[in-house]
């Protein structure tokens, strides 16, 4: 069920990219799709009643110094979290690139409407 809602969020973004003709709206659609994908990847690693993958003092076995099995069997997946961390930062860079293209197009054509931007010159 949360997977389906997450997919619905992705589809809202896809609809926005396909249907809208305002450039900033298209950028917003791409952003919504990014949020949905990040959320889905984190959801894949979630365990019901899990703990964050951070080892505290209470998770260490006092006698041997190793990890307690209660942590090993309850920690959520750290791998998608690390990769989504990368993805979020990259999405900021791509957002800056897309918005700078929008700003330049607005400066040249005076509109965000992609159907009115026809005078493409080299």
């Amino acid at each position: 069920m949360p997977y389906a809602l997450c997919f619905l969020l992705f589809m809202i973004g896809l609809y926005c990219v396909v249907v809208k003709k305002n450039m900033v709206k298209i950028v917003i659609g791409i952003l919504v799709m990014e949020y949905a994908v990040n959320l889905f990847l984190i959801m894949l690693g979630y365990r019901m009643g899990g703990v964050a993958p951070i080892v505290g003092q209470s998770e260490l076995d006092p006698s041997t110094g190793g990890l307690l099995s209660s942590f090993l069997n309850a920690s959520v997946d750290p791998l998608p979290q690390a990769l989504v961390l990368t993805s979020i930062v990259i999405s900021l860079g791509s957002l800056a690139l897309m918005i700078s293209v929008c700003v330049r197009v607005y400066g040249k054509y005076g509109t965000f409407d992609i159907t009115e931007i026809r005078r493409l010159k080299g």
């Binding site: 959801m43 979630y46 959520v76 979290q81």
Partner: peptide, 16 residues
């Protein structure tokens, strides 16, 4: 992300 036990992502998401 906080509810999904991913505090690092939550912090980064706020800054970004």
């Amino acid at each position: 992300f906080l509810f999904l036990r991913a505090p690092d992502i939550a912090i980064t998401q706020i800054v970004v």
